[in-house]
């Protein structure tokens, strides 16, 4: 009796759901967990705002060096070497703060949903559906958070420069450079958010459902 040959034909293959299902489900999850989503998004906003304030300050300095009046240019050029080193240090620091902050927020938000992931697997969800769910959710949060962060960061620096240089700021306004830095920050924000979410989602999805459910955070 123990050697009966199993017939595999009784088992079907689970369908791959269209992406729209995952999309709808992620959107609803963000909406319903709004409070939690806001906290996660806020940490993205803060990280990106910090980064962007440093980058836009770079842009304004570059603008002054290019089109500013001679007397200011000379003061800046006298300290150029020092300013460059300080800027480089600040940019690297803000990058690190931004990456660590966002990854940490995402790790927490996804890891605390391990049980939910295990349950969905019990109900017949494929691993890749779960990962899709979290890619969509985190990229949305990353996108919205980064845009808000870019706006805040740029505005903050802008006001500082307006206070210092008054009307001159419009004359040297480095629009092209600011746009370039903004796109870079948004891209980075989305990328880091997705990476930070994917890793724990993938780990939980790969676990046997029993383990994912058991895993305490």
């Amino acid at each position: 009796m123990a050697t009966r040959v199993p017939e595999k034909k009784k088992i079907g293959k689970q369908l791959t759901l269209p992406l729209s299902h995952a999309f709808n489900m992620s959107m609803r999850s963000i909406k319903i967990r709004f409070g939690r989503s806001i906290i996660v998004t806020m940490s993205i906003v803060l990280g990106i705002a910090f980064l962007m304030s440093i980058l836009s300050s770079n842009a304004f300095t570059a603008g002054i060096l290019e089109k500013g009046p001679e007397n200011i240019k000379i003061t800046i050029q006298q300290n150029l070497e020092e300013i460059r080193i300080r800027q480089l240090w600040l940019v690297s620091l803000s990058l690190i703060v931004c990456v660590v902050g966002i990854v940490n927020a995402m790790l927490m938000a996804v890891t605390e949903r391990s049980r939910e992931i295990g349950t969905m697997k019990c109900l017949g969800a494929l691993d890749k559906f779960i990962v899709e769910l979290f890619i969509i959710e985190s990229s949305m949060q990353g996108f919205v958070g980064s845009i808000i962060g870019v706006i805040f960061g740029t505005l903050a620096t802008f006001f500082v420069y307006v206070l210092r240089y008054k009307g001159l700021i419009w004359h040297i306004f480095p629009a092209g450079l600011l746009l370039k830095y903004s796109l870079f920050s948004i891209l980075l924000g989305v990328l880091i958010s997705v990476i930070g979410a994917i890793y724990p989602a993938y780990v939980s999805a790969k676990l046997e459902p029993a383990e994912a459910i058991r895993r305490e955070v």
């Binding site: 017939e7 595999k8 088992i11 079907g12 293959k13 689970q14 017949g124 494929l126």
Partner: peptide, 15 residues
């Protein structure tokens, strides 16, 4: 059916 022999899609179908 020996469930150890199922792939991920079949196992999800079974569950």
């Amino acid at each position: 059916v020996d469930i150890a022999q199922l792939d991920a899609y079949e196992l999800a179908w079974l569950r």
